[in-house]
Amino acid sequence: MNDFAGRRVAVTGASGFIGGRVVERLVLGTGAEVRALVRGYGRAARLSVLPQERLTFRAVDLDAPQSLRKALDGCDLVVHCAFGSRGEVDDRWRTTVDGTANLLDVAKLAGVERLVHLSTVDVYDTSGLRRFDETAPALGEDADDREYEQQKAAAERLVLAAHGDGPETVVLQPGVVYGPWGGQWTVAQLTRPAEEFEELPVTGAGGACNAVYVDDVVDAVLAALAEPAAAGRKFLVSGPDEPGWGEFFDRLRGIRGLPAPAGTPADGAVPDWEQALYASPARVDAALAARLLAAPRTTLDEGMTRTAQWARWAGYGAPGGAGR
């Protein structure tokens, strides 16, 4: 894989889960000069322990093109991980969608060669599907819905449309990303009320999880920065095995030291919309990413073992808790 020696790579959302790991891997595993773009420095402490010779930080606001212009000056490549996660829905939309438009405009002016955008599997309409790839129907546009899925779909459309008029663009669409420092599918699950696990699936139950360990996502990012054939394309990214939601939650039960459900759940602890998510049979076919980018290597067992080790260090796991 290209080690990016002599190349300057900017990473938006560098203080977040995936963005932070992209920065770590670039600094520790390549020769790139890395520019970590963050909203504020307070959440960047995780990156402060990295060697600083090829790492610099810039405070940016995606809503403010002027700060982006300074941040992207001299950059060859961009990894766009940031999205709106704070404030009211209009604030989040502005950061995710309008912020992406601003980034694309500034990247063009700065002469950026390629931009890799982190999207999500949620941009597809998988109703009635048991397996789907990049040719599946897109989520329908809904002007009255400005929540996460519509935000990410709108931002993705902008990125794909920009290819050929500025930097080359590549879109990655990961599934359920978990691992050390993870938010929704790691820390949130390790800290949710234990009684809710009485209503969550067990091994052999539930639909398709489409779990992918964070390092497999970063492998795809690094390959997408360098692979000529990736330009202008979108890629679903999922793990090498195909666990169900029951397997996923049983690994989390193991990390937390929780017993198997007793069969008497407190009905209503897990909302209907979430239960519907865990029932969906739609399974990602990530063959295109495996062929053109990086084949995923981390099984659920391996990923959850690493996550359990981190959870114990971070104070989230039960003493002696395991990933299986």
Rank of each mutant, 00 (worst) to 15 (best):
D3T: 13
F4Y: 12
G16V: 05
F17A: 09
G19I: 04
G19S: 04
V23S: 03
R25C: 11
L28Q: 12
A32E: 01
E33G: 08
V38P: 04
L47S: 05
L47H: 00
L50H: 07
Q52M: 03
E53F: 00
L55K: 07
T56V: 13
R58W: 04
R58V: 13
A59F: 01
D61G: 13
D61V: 10
L62W: 09
A64K: 08
Q66G: 09
L68T: 11
C75Y: 05
L77Y: 08
A82Y: 03
F83C: 12
G84C: 11
D90S: 14
D91E: 15
D91I: 00
W93T: 06
R94S: 14
T95V: 15
T96R: 08
V97G: 09
D98V: 14
D98M: 01
D98C: 00
T100C: 11
N102Y: 01
L103P: 06
L109V: 09
L109K: 02
L118F: 07
T120L: 03
T120W: 06
Y124I: 10
Y124M: 13
L129R: 04
R130N: 15
F132Q: 02
F132C: 08
D133N: 15
A138T: 12
E141F: 14
A143M: 02
D144Y: 09
Q150F: 01
Q150D: 01
A154K: 06
E156F: 09
G166L: 00
E168R: 14
T169W: 02
T169P: 02
T169C: 11
V170R: 01
G175C: 12
Y178L: 06
G182F: 10
T186E: 04
T186A: 14
T186C: 14
A188N: 15
Q189W: 14
A194P: 00
A194R: 08
V202W: 02
G204D: 06
A205W: 04
G206A: 09
V212F: 08
V217M: 11
V217L: 09
V221P: 02
L225R: 09
E227Y: 05
A231Y: 10
R233Y: 02
K234C: 12
V237R: 13
V237N: 07
V237M: 11
G239E: 02
G239I: 03
W245S: 08
G246F: 06
E247T: 10
F248K: 00
D250A: 09
R251W: 00
R251D: 05
R253H: 03
G257K: 10
L258I: 00
G268N: 01
A269V: 08
V270N: 03
P271A: 02
Q275A: 13
S280F: 00
S280G: 05
S280K: 12
A290N: 04
P296R: 03
D301N: 12
G303F: 03
G303C: 04
M304Q: 14
T305V: 08
A308C: 12
R312S: 14
R312A: 15
P319T: 07
P319I: 03
